[in-house]
Write a protein that binds this DNA or RNA. Structure first.
Lengths: 211, 211
DNA sequence: ACCGAAGTTAAACAAACGTTTGATTTTTTG
DNA sequence: CAAAAAATCAAACGTTTGTTTAACTTCGGT
């Protein structure tokens, strides 16, 4: 493993292993060995296995919320802001797939402490979506969709490629063509703004130009 | 627990516990105790813990594929078939939330045996989507989106409500309004067919009218 | 040079893990 | 009713689990 500080090596190894085997499926001894540290260092730095998970989750949600705030706040049109958000978020997901998997797949498991932890982040994101997406949407179209519904939809949709990737990789097999990220962003954006039936726009850069 | 046959009681208890604590997070002793059977009966009926998981997954994918086949095959318009599929699938998800959670959240974990198992089901679903959705879509709009991309997107989107429900329940807190299932189906269908910006149609049955 | 804090270590802890065994009960079958 | 098959059981198998302890090294500040 790299020549990072031990604390960072533990964090990196944990992200990879939690994504591969799940949180409960990962043993601290395997983790310590891959991180190249002594077993006891994990509890020394993070207090407990759960503390380690919390730090990973916080890292994800903090960045995700920052992206949402940056792209959704402001005076641009709702569709512009939404397409910018989708672009930035998917790129972030792509760059940190393992963190995303940990955050998403550990979602429904019912440790009350973890649920409340995540709810605190989710509350902020939902509030932002309510203001910047749901409210203008209701004014424009008459549809009143709450943020607690649109939030999960947006996040799930953007994460779908990564959530299913191990299986879909196996499904694609030989006749390749895994849809590059740019196209994926374009598909999701078009889906959200115009629906599946949207006509193709050749050479369109109109969607994906963040400032 | 109910007065079902012991084999069924194990299956039911496993679905609930795997959904709550994850596969690796569930101990067979707790499972046996909740199912009201002796510990050894689990291995007696299912061979191993993994065999138990496989049976749960098979149950889910078999029904999911059956719904997709029933709703997507035939001569109706693509949008009609799609909206029927979304309706049936979401209702099925709702009726068996725990099974859905097990199937979805255990997705990325990397036991090769399980991945190949799921890939076999996914292959059939993707093939169906290619024929009934992707092909007509390409003809109508010029957009060529592979089934391995649309499959995950569709499933993720429909599952989003259930995947995030423990957290969102906490987020909603006091000022209620959890979007009933009928509205949820309508939102997703409209999103897929016309995009978010679709105008509201009061008392709309217009979504599912074939041309 | 020395001291206290921070970092690192091997070893041990009890508890829980999935699985197997062999005996015993229940049910089915001839 | 007896023999065969299926179901159920308590107990133990050897690992592995997350965490803790106490001793040890490393190192910056005075």
């Amino acid at each position: 493993m790299e020549d990072l500080a031990p604390r960072e090596r533990i964090l990196h190894a944990a992200i990879v292993l939690f994504a591969r085997h799940g949180f409960t499926g990962t043993g601290l001894r395997e983790l310590a060995s891959i991180a190249g540290v002594n077993l006891a260092m994990i509890n020394y730095f993070f207090g407990s296995k759960m503390g380690l998970l919390k730090e990973i989750l916080d890292g994800f949600f903090e960045k995700y919320l920052a992206i949402a705030t940056r792209e959704l706040r402001g005076s641009a049109s709702m569709s512009t802001k939404l397409s910018r958000f989708i672009y930035s978020a998917v790129c972030y997901f792509e760059s940190e797939q393992d963190v995303l998997l940990v955050a998403i797949t550990e979602l429904p498991h019912d440790d009350p402490e973890i649920i409340e932890h995540k709810a605190n982040w989710a509350r902020q994101l939902v509030k932002l979506l309510e203001q910047e997406i749901c409210k203008p949407l209701a004014e424009e179209t008459g549809r009143n969709i709450p943020g607690t519904c649109i939030g999960p939809m947006l996040t799930s949709l953007m994460a779908s490629r990564f959530l299913f990737s191990p299986v879909m990789q196996q499904v694609r097999k030989s006749d390749e063509d895994p849809v590059d990220i740019a196209s994926y962003v374009e598909i999701i954006t078009a889906l959200f703004l115009q629906g599946l039936a949207a006509q193709e726009e050749k050479n369109c850069k109109s969607i994906s130009t963040p400032t």
